[in-house]
Design a protein around this nucleic acid. Structure first.
Lengths: 188, 188
DNA sequence: CAACACTTAGTACCTGATACTATAACCTGT
DNA sequence: ACAGGTTATAGTATCAGGTACTAAGTGTTG
């Protein structure tokens, strides 16, 4: 395989892109792909401040773990600010880069929903519960960097059904509103 | 009953737990924490088939990246099976371990929502759009391992508002149903 | 006390690097 | 055309965090 030699800056750009796309490549593999020596790759990385493979992998692992935790494993999506079990609760979610659409920079709806839904679940005082029904209105698009504050309130309880209203604000502006009916689940 | 054996097993359990909790520890650090020699740690890892630090980190990075991709960066949550732009679409989502509540093994509601919502967005033939309103009913709890098939259909369009219905089934059973009003977004 | 499991020590070697030195190849201007 | 600077390559020493293996203790226990 013979690749045309390119200028340094162009090569460095190619290198950076490649590493961005496939961070698991060693210097040796990168050298072969760009048809230069391994020393050149190392000089380029040094100049551009790109860390070595192991360091890249380590960072990805830490970072990705945190992101996975943010949406999947935590009890509540976002940060729980206040909770009065059986009455109300408040949580905060910061919209990060990976929660938005690339083109529009507008938050994907399911993040806003997730915050509200998980908060609604947290406020009800029952060992186990699931969402039954939800009525949702997105009022204003949310952008990257904004901090969403969701307030949940139990407005009525009938048997094992809890009616929870959640209002999400960005600053003073209400951006989202949801009514949930949560169903508690006595094990049998 | 051999005394030494018991000690060994307990230590190995402690070791396994520790690595589970803090996978970024080197053998040297683990040796210090458990007050044994580094060789003992290595023998233990060998016996239990626990890979070395670098390998552990590498696996975490790969794996976590895939998970992050599943919910955050992909256009559609789940796997897009079929899409007729402007009419309908089908997607499939496999419920994995980290999508469920630990205690109940029931899927968190927002995953089911995310699948439906992202599919609803995908079917509408507009460059940019956001969710406006959603009416949702969870009919049956979903468990780990199950495959959810969501079908979205555009039922009406009025101006820049698209009315999309999504029905999600697990096998023949309908587990979830949603009506979305999506709003397309002409940039100005 | 002898047998055997367990633990520790130590060595050679591996990968994927950093850090540094030395030299070769390529432009560029005058 | 040739000097001078930039760019590329080669090579060496060293490192972390291991694997794989050999050898020598240290208990425990029957």
């Amino acid at each position: 395989m013979h690749m045309a030699k390119v200028k340094k800056k162009i090569r460095q750009q190619l290198l950076a892109d490649r590493i961005q796309e496939q961070p698991f490549l060693t210097d040796e593999e990168l050298a072969r792909l760009l048809a230069v020596s391994i020393q050149t790759i190392r000089l380029d990385r040094l100049e551009m401040g790109i860390p070595e493979l192991r360091e890249r992998v380590r960072r990805m692992a830490e970072n990705a773990q945190a992101k996975v935790k943010a949406i999947s494993s935590g009890e509540v999506v976002g940060e729980l600010i206040d909770l009065e079990l059986g009455h109300s609760g408040i949580s905060m979610l910061r919209i990060t880069d990976d929660m938005v659409f690339e083109k529009t920079r507008v938050a994907r709806g399911h993040y806003v929903f997730s915050q509200a839904n998980s908060l609604a679940l947290a406020v009800i005082d029952a060992p186990m519960a699931v969402t039954g029904v939800a009525n949702i209105k997105y009022k204003v698009p949310v952008h990257v960097g904004e901090k969403l504050v969701a307030k949940a309130e139990i407005v009525r309880q009938r048997g094992n059904k809890y009616f929870v209203w959640v209002k999400t604000r960005n600053g003073d502006q209400e951006v989202f509103r949801a009514k949930f009916i949560m169903v508690s689940w006595t094990e049998k």
